[in-house]
Design a protein around this nucleic acid. Structure first.
Lengths: 229, 229
DNA sequence: GCCTTTGTGTCACATAAGTGTCATAGAGAT
DNA sequence: ATCTCTATGACACTTATGTGACACAAAGGC
């Protein structure tokens, strides 16, 4: 599946240039010149990457950035900021709001694409729409569907995100707080015990009576997805 | 176990940005804006990495750096310096004497994180998630998993930390007090005999009936990890 | 809009796992 | 033999995790 990018840029010519380049690299491109619009579009369909001009209409890039980081679903989508030369100050401020990378105009499209790809590769593979697999589990991020050995499983939304997070980084311990940050959202205040409960629900949903334990408890550290018991 | 970082930066917004990024990479983050504070915090709990702004309150970054290097405990903790563009070349050169790396603002968070990890990898491979190995033992710090000759072993949290410490510095005698400081924490008041007990438990967990003795007792000195008994 | 169904976050309590200390036995050194 | 230091098994205690129940919120059908 092709990755999707949202371009938020009010300079029409530049926006079209970027659209063209991303398009010819196989991205699914959407674009707007307006900050409010951008937030709505993100809500409607989460892009895998956001390219954001710092100076745009109706809502500054900084503000858009902040809003995106606040929402749970979009908190981890990589954001690339565009700033004009001479806006050194703005550049710094842009970073402060949580952008992952920035580019100073003018820049070569090739550089933009290279960095975009680096961000995408580094961020969660699931964002790129790739199928996740582990042992006999398969998770289709786009379709929100999970199978075990061909059989479709039923998970609630939270369990789905939890499992997705485990499958993105398997064989690795995740502390309860890390799981809360990743699954519920950075600023949520969720009791750590609540994680236990959802782990139990997730286990109940994916563990087959005969099958091996997929979610391992690591005492005093957290949980991890593992095959060998 | 997650690596810990101390951020010393008086620009609140930038500090928060760094905290956010380190946090989402799984670091245990502490922060202060004040140089004196920083020294105290390092004393209280030694971080695995220090990010230090050159211009901070009450004590310059350079001075903090010097003090840290003087103290035996903190002498080997990697320090990353942040400097603003336009600060004179020779001053920057000055930084390089004490710091392990430095970055000029503005910088992308990706770059900072990448370099931080490089530093960490050098000083404490286990914290950077690198596999530790000794004889036929393998320890995966990220997964909290230990194998001997391919077979998964079960260790409790304390035994795990103990073994990790031995594997980070094998073929070297660790006194009981050193082990307590490293495994339990500097401020804990643990009876030295207690170390014996945990050594026994660790041995029980890793020593195979036929295998060689991995943990050697060094009479009146402590313990060490060795292959040749 | 109303009502059922589904999902969520917390609790209180049960269970399990790990911890630190001690007394005593054993091993080494001189 | 005697003195010192280490190994071991037992045990009381602390801490961490699993579980079932429940009140409430959100979503979906009619």
């Amino acid at each position: 599946m092709q990755p999707s990018v949202l371009i938020v840029e009010d300079d029409t010519a530049l926006s079209e240039l970027l659209q063209w380049h991303f398009n010819s690299e196989g991205y699914d491109v959407r674009a707007t010149a307006d900050g409010e619009d951008a937030l709505i579009m993100v809500r409607e369909e989460l892009p895998d990457l956001i390219v954001l001009d710092w100076m745009i209409e109706s809502l500054s890039g900084v503000e858009v950035c902040r809003q995106l980081r606040k929402a749970r679903e979009s908190a981890r989508v990589p954001i690339m900021m565009l700033t004009a030369r001479g806006e050194e100050e703005d550049k710094i401020r842009g970073l402060k709001t949580g952008a992952d990378d920035y580019l100073t105009k003018p820049f070569s499209p090739r550089e933009l694409l290279a960095r975009a790809e680096a961000l995408l590769r580094r961020s969660r593979p699931a964002l790129a729409g790739e199928m996740l697999a582990f042992a006999d589990l398969e998770l289709d991020p786009a379709a929100h569907r999970v199978k075990r050995g061909g059989e479709v499983l039923h998970l609630g939304p939270t369990e789905f995100r939890l499992l997705r997070h485990f499958m993105e980084k398997p064989r690795r311990v995740h502390s309860r707080q890390q799981l809360i940050d990743a699954v519920w959202g950075m600023d949520k205040e969720i009791d750590e015990r609540t994680v236990d409960v959802h782990i139990r629900r997730l286990r109940q949903a994916i563990e087959r009576p005969g099958g091996t334990e997929l979610i391992r408890t690591v005492r005093s550290a957290g949980y991890s997805m593992d095959d060998a018991a």
